[in-house]
Design a protein around this nucleic acid. Structure first.
Lengths: 160, 160
DNA sequence: TATTGTTATACTCTATAACTATA
DNA sequence: TATAGTTATAGAGTATAACAATA
């Protein structure tokens, strides 16, 4: 990392053209960067963003069905089974079979899971506040608002 | 898909809380949705968004080093080798070893690759214009501008 | 018959380390 | 010694399909 300009001139000369106006491309790059910072703060615990998100949703909705978690987080059922298994193995989540529908699996946080979520809440929710942040607080607010609108999550939130 | 409200009541009752203000979470959901639409329009060709992005960058920067493409797109070198191999196998990309540095691999589009990119340019760049779009053109412009700023890509663009 | 979740398979992508051939 | 790519391995995540248990 001596001098990027003389060592890797190609990178700075790359022409991206219209692709840098592509929503898909920008979302991909932004997500990679934001997740990178997330790993720096939470990564020591060996938990992936997706796994923490599942913990979070379960924490807010104790006893939620596994399939419901999978649907709202766009996780495939087959993968959800493995992901849940990992969280159970780590002692963060517990499974239960309800009497009214014994096909279902209801998930809730173990005491350790609750402690974990509480302890890392700030790192997860506000991991966009750091030195590499090019946006002002107002701009971040606007960005978050637009993303919620884009994804339709503002509708979800306002009706709950 | 008979009646979501009576069939899957859980989904609409799920409490997301502060997580819906998390930039990382919103970026993840937004990316999944946007890529889903991309697949609908381009998916028939069996090409992944990442692969098309590589084609696009190579098309705009013929003879670019494989490592440079990997760096700017945050693709790991090991994976880049396989990804390039796939594109070469499909006849879309050609590799060349420059005489001045025989360790390097320079990439360019084959005639077929050029045709492919040209034919699917619109679907890729503007795949956010469809019926599921909750944002106005102005809002999309703002969103794209903020994402470029967030990722630092506006700096890249303005200096090229 | 339809639904919930699991198992199995295959492939994409990430993460690392060891390796080659060049420089 | 360092760099550009490759190979190999392991795990995460996606995509499907087949399956068991239950409704």
């Amino acid at each position: 990392m001596t001098d990027a300009l003389t060592r890797q001139p190609d990178v700075d000369k790359i022409e991206l053209g219209e692709i840098s106006d592509s929503l898909g491309f920008l979302l991909r790059v932004a997500q990679i960067q934001v997740f990178e910072r997330f790993f720096d703060s939470l990564g020591g615990h060996g938990l992936k963003p997706g796994e923490f998100t599942v913990l979070w949703v379960i924490g807010l909705n104790p006893g939620l069905r596994q399939g419901a978690v999978a649907r709202i987080l766009s996780i495939k059922p087959a993968h959800m089974t493995k992901l849940t298994g990992r969280l159970v193995d780590r002692g963060l989540v517990s499974r239960a079979t309800p009497a009214d529908d014994r096909r279902a699996v209801r998930l809730s946080l173990s005491p350790e899971g609750q402690r974990f979520v509480a302890a890392n809440r700030t790192a997860f929710i506000e991991h966009h506040h750091d030195e590499r942040n090019y946006l002002s607080p107002d701009e971040i607010e606007t960005l978050i608002g637009l993303l919620k609108k884009l994804t339709g999550l503002d509708t979800h939130a306002s009706q709950s």
